[in-house]
C-alpha cells in the first residue's frame, strides 16, 4: 500500500501547486481572451483545488489502510506470485445502478445550475434512492423463485 499512497500524495501536492500557479498566472494576465484581466480565473482554479482534494481523499484512505494491514506480498521485496493466491474479494459482476446514480446526479446538477429548487429537491431524493440501490443491491432480501 506504500507505493499507492505515495503516488496519490505526489499527485495531490502537484494539483495544489498547479492551482496556485494557475491562479497566479490568470491574476497577472491582462489579456481578455484568457478571462477577466487581472482577476483569478476561478473555474479552473477551483477545479484544480478540488482535483487535489479528491486525490488527497484517496491518499488518506490508502495511507490509513497501509498502517492498519500487514504488508501484502506486492509490498514486500521477497513476495512471490503464489503468495497472493486465494480470494481477492467481492466485486459487482454487473450493475445498472451506477447509471442511475449518474442520472440522478445530473438531474440534481441541472437543478443547481438553473437554480430550480423543486428540481434540486426531486433530484436529491432520487439521488438518495440511487445511492441506496447501489449500496444494497446485493443485500436485498432473498427472493422466492417463480411468480410471487
Amino acid at each position: 500500500m506504500k507505493t499507492e499512497h505515495r503516488l496519490f500524495a505526489i499527485v495531490m501536492v502537484f494539483m495544489f501547486l498547479f492551482a496556485a500557479g494557475y491562479g497566479y498566472w490568470t491574476y497577472i494576465n491582462d489579456n481578455p481572451a484568457y478571462g477577466r484581466p487581472n482577476h483569478v480565473e476561478w473555474v479552473g482554479t477551483i477545479g484544480l483545488i478540488f482535483s487535489g482534494l479528491l486525490t488527497g481523499m484517496v491518499w488518506l484512505v490508502f495511507w490509513v489502510i497501509s498502517r492498519r494491514i500487514d504488508p501484502r506480498p506486492e509490498d514486500r521485496p521477497d513476495g512471490e506470485i503464489s503468495d497472493v493466491s486465494g480470494e481477492v474479494g467481492f466485486f459487482s459482476p454487473g450493475s445498472y445502478w451506477p447509471l442511475g446514480l449518474a442520472l440522478t446526479a445530473v438531474i440534481t446538477g441541472v437543478g443547481v445550475v438553473f437554480w430550480l429548487p423543486w428540481l434540486i429537491t426531486a433530484g436529491g431524493v432520487a439521488l438518495l434512492f440511487a445511492v441506496g440501490g447501489l449500496t444494497f443491491e446485493y443485500y436485498t432480501g432473498t427472493r422466492k423463485l417463480g411468480p410471487q
Binding site: 506470485i81 503464489s82 497472493v84 493466491s85 486465494g86 480470494e87 481477492v88 474479494g89 467481492f90 466485486f91 459487482s92 459482476p93 454487473g94 446485493y138
Partner: peptide, 16 residues
C-alpha cells in the same frame, strides 16, 4: 450465476 467473488490462483491468474 456470477457470484462476484474474485479469486487468484497460484500463477496469479484472476477468475470469478
Amino acid at each position: 450465476l456470477e457470484t462476484g467473488i474474485l479469486m487468484r490462483d497460484p500463477n496469479g491468474r484472476f477468475y470469478e
